[in-house]
Design a protein around this nucleic acid. Structure first.
Length: 557
DNA sequence: GCCGTTTTCGGCCCGACTGTTTTCAGTCG
């Protein structure tokens, strides 16, 4: 078995055990094993040959033993025992909001429901009301949840595609017959969700490359090889397309990246209006009399043209001077204040705002007034220490926007803070009018400088709350509050379409990793993707401003 | 299941919300 197949088996074992009602921590252990294997640099067989399996974090005796069974026999005792206990469709049911493992198991056992379609029909026919714990209201909500699941599930979130792409690159490049791997299409253009994950794979021996791809055991079912040698199929429920080419030329890369309208436009600017063979994309743009046009802006030809003419420069990672929305061990973060600050310095930033959760978010150990005072006592000497290094450590707070729109923080604490990131975490299910009022009230608070993850969406999991985003943007502009582009991979919130509208209304933005550990700063490209697709420049992003200007703005000086 | 260790076994995210129930189970953040 390949490592990918072994990882997949561990995930399937976890899924089945969950429906069977096993110990949740055991389930988590199998899922962790899957993620660990996916992230391994080396392959399992080599690691085992060196006798180093036990050195892999999250590998204990049980996972290690089953890994060896998979490596030597292609299966394991536990898998053979449980694999036919729960149909795959039942596991899928648990992905619907409001349906968890218990309900999935219940409808499977009592109604023999094994697919989402069957569950929908059962709900439409009122069959679920016969089950204990079900009533008309729950049945109605379930039908809505299934509709939402269909909307959400129809596209692949970028956060799911990128780690997969990294694995594809690593494995294919190590195979010996592949000379280059490039992610193209919507993913290269930085879209938050994709209709298909597309790759260009280069290799002199096309037959060998194709065989290598198919033999990895990635595909959920049989992959299809098209007439031109391309391979398509479903991997981990993602539509995936591999274009196999001898070398990755500029014209192939440009065409595969798309979109079609952009390719047609740039082709029209080329000599003779024809796309000839170019070694690189740079060569194409040069021939068209343009500078390099970033993939993220290619969906908007007018902006793309401005980039090409050198009139628009999109914000980039190196433009950041600050991060303004960060958590530490004071709430639900994994690193201390000084660890976060040291990391910020290492990354070349000059300002870091510490914004732990507020008291009402008890799950995340939000700061009570007493603990806030204690945090100030820790912060004060650190601020002096870092000031000596020309680094500003700011006392902030991610304050919950309470139901009445007030900030979740005592006035005596609020007055001591440098600024507040105001976010909605609780009571999502208000009407649009209520939520809009609530958020506009929070935006109007003088301490609020950033509106955190404005829509509350979670890609692939949850649609945002109902809110009038036009009214929110107007309020943010009026009160000089920056709208966050949260770079959490599952959030990418605000989305590019609204960022574009906001920018048109003169809004400011703040791109934040919402980091809960020093590694989470690596997420910034997800937020940048939204900003760059919307055509933002560094002037429109407050945490790209020079430190003096930024701090003055934060403090409303 | 794994982990950390008082090297043997308890802790591991826990409380709010919802729709059911008639005191609670399941889901979610």
């Amino acid at each position: 078995m390949t490592d990918t197949q072994i990882a997949r088996r561990f995930r399937q074992i976890g899924d089945i055990l969950e429906i069977k009602g096993e110990n949740p921590f055991k389930i988590k252990a199998y899922r962790t094993a899957c993620d660990t294997i996916d992230a391994l640099e080396d392959n399992l067989a080599d690691i085992d040959a060196r006798g180093e399996l036990q050195n892999i974090p999250s590998f204990g005796p049980a996972i290690m033993g089953k890994t060896r069974e998979f490596l030597t026999t292609g299966t394991c005792e536990l898998w053979e025992k449980i694999k036919s206990d729960v149909p795959a469709g039942v596991i899928q049911l648990a992905g619907i909001r409001g349906v968890g493992p218990k309900v999935a198991a219940q409808v499977f056992k009592e109604l023999n429901v094994t697919t989402v379609d069957a569950l929908e029909i059962a709900a439409q026919n009122g069959q679920l009301q016969a089950l204990s714990g079900f009533g008309a209201a729950k049945e109605k909500k379930l039908l809505e949840a299934i509709a939402a699941w269909r909307r959400i599930g129809s596209r692949v979130p970028l956060w799911k595609a990128l780690p997969f792409a990294a694995r594809v690159s690593r494995v294919l490049l190590a195979s010996g017959c592949v000379s280059g791997v490039q992610l193209t299409g919507e993913a290269r253009r930085g879209m938050d969700t994709l209709s298909c994950v597309r790759f260009l794979v280069a290799g002199a021996d096309k037959v060998a490359v194709t065989k290598t791809i198919v033999d990895q055991g990635w595909f959920d079912a049989e992959a299809s090889t098209l007439a031109n040698g391309d391979i398509t199929g479903i991997i981990d429920e993602m539509p995936v397309h591999f274009s196999v080419v001898p070398t990755i030329t500029g014209n192939v890369l440009l065409t595969e990246t798309g979109p079609e309208a952009f390719v047609a436009w740039i082709t029209g600017l080329l000599p003779g209006g024809v796309m000839a063979e170019y070694a690189s994309e740079d060569a194409i743009f040069e021939a068209a009399g343009m500078r390099f046009i970033d993939p993220e802006i290619r969906d908007h030809t007018e902006d793309a043209a401005r980039v090409g003419r050198g009139e628009l420069r999109l914000v980039t990672l190196s433009d950041f001077t600050a991060q303004l929305h960060e958590h530490t061990t004071w709430s639900d973060g994994r690193n201390s204040i000084s660890e976060m600050a040291d990391e910020a310095i290492r990354r070349g930033w000059s300002t870091l705002g510490i914004t732990d959760h507020s008291a009402s978010l008890t799950v995340a150990r939000g700061l009570t007034t007493e603990r806030h005072i204690a945090q100030f006592e820790e912060l004060a000497p650190l601020q002096g220490h870092y000031a000596d290094q020309d680094f500003a450590l700011l006392a902030g707070l991610e304050a919950d926007i309470l139901q009445d729109g007030s900030l979740d923080c005592a006035p005596e604490i609020l007055s001591q803070l440098h600024y507040v990131v105001a976010s909605v975490h609780i009571r999502y299910k208000e009407t649009e009018a209520q939520m809009t009022d609530r958020m506009c009230t929070a935006i109007a608070h003088p301490k609020t400088r950033i509106l955190g993850h404005p829509t509350g969406r979670l890609l692939g999991r949850r649609e945002g709350y109902a809110v009038d985003m036009n009214a929110i943007i107007d309020a943010a502009v009026k009160h000089n509050v920056a709208i966050e582009i949260n770079a959490g991979p599952e959030r990418m919130d605000l989305c590019d379409a609204w960022v574009r509208i906001g920018a048109g209304k003169g809004a400011k933005f703040s791109i934040n990793a919402d980091a809960h550990s020093i590694n989470h700063f690596d997420w910034l490209p997800y937020g940048l993707a939204m900003a760059r697709r919307a055509g933002l420049t560094k002037e429109q992003v407050v945490n790209c401003w020079e430190p003096g200007k930024l701090v003055a703005w934060l403090l409303r000086i």
